[in-house]
Amino acid sequence: MKLDEKISLTISKKQELRIWLLRQPCPAEGKRLTLQALADALGIRLSTLSKHLDNPTIPVDHHRILRERFGIPAELLPEPKDLPPGPRPKMMASVHQFM
């Protein structure tokens, strides 16, 4: 590789969000705004928030809270969209047939 060649790096929206959080002023002395703090504010587990941020959509109410309460730019978040729950697992459906 030549020294004058440009290197392009691709980072995910979740990585961009983490960078944005690191650049924000401390809301409380000695504490940074973290994904865990965001999950706590939404009333969900960190793993659930992480899954939301990896998906192309996020529940509308979570999107609104992240934008309004924390001022997170919309371009760092997945599209707000409420999706219906998925189909009932087949195993559970067969159990209910015998009841």
Rank of each mutant, 00 (worst) to 15 (best):
I72A: 07
I7C: 04
G30I: 11
L38H: 06
L42T: 04
L46Y: 10
V95R: 14
I19H: 09
K2F: 11
K81C: 13
L77C: 09
L83R: 15
G86W: 06
S50I: 02
K31C: 11
P80T: 10
G43C: 08
K14G: 03
L38W: 03
F98H: 04
Q15I: 06
I44M: 05
Q97H: 13
T34Q: 05
T10M: 14
C26I: 00
K51H: 05
E75K: 13
L35I: 03
S50T: 15
K6A: 09
L49H: 04
P85K: 13
K14Q: 15
K90P: 01
K2W: 05
T57Y: 06
P80S: 12
E5N: 08
P84T: 00
P56M: 05
E29W: 03
E75C: 08
E75D: 14
I65T: 15
L17H: 02
Q36C: 02
K90A: 14
P89A: 13
I7W: 08
P78I: 09
E5S: 07
L33N: 11
L46G: 02
G30C: 11
E29N: 02
I19P: 00
G86P: 10
E68A: 04
L42P: 03
L77Y: 06
L21E: 04
M92T: 00
I19Q: 12
E16N: 11
L49N: 05
C26P: 00
S8H: 14
L66R: 03
Q24P: 03
F70T: 02
I19S: 10
S50M: 01
Q36Y: 09
L42S: 04
L9K: 12
I44N: 02
R18F: 01
S12D: 01
I11M: 15
T48D: 07
V95T: 07
K6Q: 07
P89V: 07
S12Y: 01
S50Q: 07
T34H: 04
V95H: 09
E5T: 08
M99A: 05
P89T: 08
G86F: 06
R32I: 01
T10F: 15
I72L: 10
L83T: 13
L9Q: 10
H96V: 08
L66Q: 03
A74F: 03
A74D: 12
R64S: 10
S94C: 10
F98C: 01
S94Q: 15
E16Q: 15
K13M: 13
D40L: 05
K14E: 11
E68M: 02
D61N: 14
T48V: 12
L3S: 11
M1Q: 11
D4K: 12
L22Y: 12
L53C: 05
I58Y: 04
L33G: 09
Q15H: 11
A28L: 12
T48G: 09
R67Y: 01
Q36V: 11
L9W: 12
I58H: 08
K31H: 13
I58K: 09
P27D: 13
T10N: 15
K2Q: 11
R18N: 13
G86K: 14
H62Q: 08
I19V: 12
M99L: 10
M99I: 05
